[in-house]
Amino acid sequence: MQSKPLTLKILDIACVLILAIATYLALIYAPEEAVMGQVQRVFYFHIGTAWTGLLGFLFAAGLGITYLVKQDLKWDIAEVAAVEISAVFFFITIVLGSIWARPIWNTWWTWDPRLTTAAITELIYVAYFMLREGIEDPDRRARFGAVYTLIGGLSAPITFLSIRLFRTIHPVVIGSGDPNAQGTFAMTPHMEVAFFFGLFAFTVIFIDLFWNRIRMGQLAAKVEQMKLNLMH
């Protein structure tokens, strides 16, 4: 069994440092928001995980297509890795958003279109794992997984588009939001530093986890192979 590559080890350590810096920037460096107070600091990680999570889902769809074209299981391993990490990131986004919404919207959860679509997107990928769970044959599992990530990757953006048909109270900090949004604010330069660093941090963490998860997938495949060899 090959040992962990040095680059990956370095990246692991770098991730811990970057996360520490991002936390410092978000919790101490960035000024306190005048209206919302401390809870606004959730925003820096909320956006970081949301963007990487959503991009990760699209990335997974791309890997799914690659698998269907190449029919090589290594693309399937990468696809599972991307979906798994994105699903966790996106779940963190929802939890962080909920923490923020409690004081700002005065509720943990509201059936706002943006929140609803976030929940639906997360459910698509829960369904993805349930689909994989139910299929024994590795090739078929990989094919179905690829097809479903492709459909999910197409459907989720359309869902986000379809909610434009409704009003939303979810704030849009970048670009112009709905005038009904509650909790919008303008970023100061210091906040922007914390914001963009948060985005960068979660991107690097995503890459690091992705790499580690692919290695884990490869090892799992090897174990499965060994088990099969033992049985025959």
């Binding site: 997107t121 459910l123 369904a127 459907s155 909610i163």
Partner: peptide, 11 residues
Amino acid sequence: LLFPVAVPVLI
């Protein structure tokens, strides 16, 4: 499998 991806249609 179907409901989450069919949401845009239903909406």
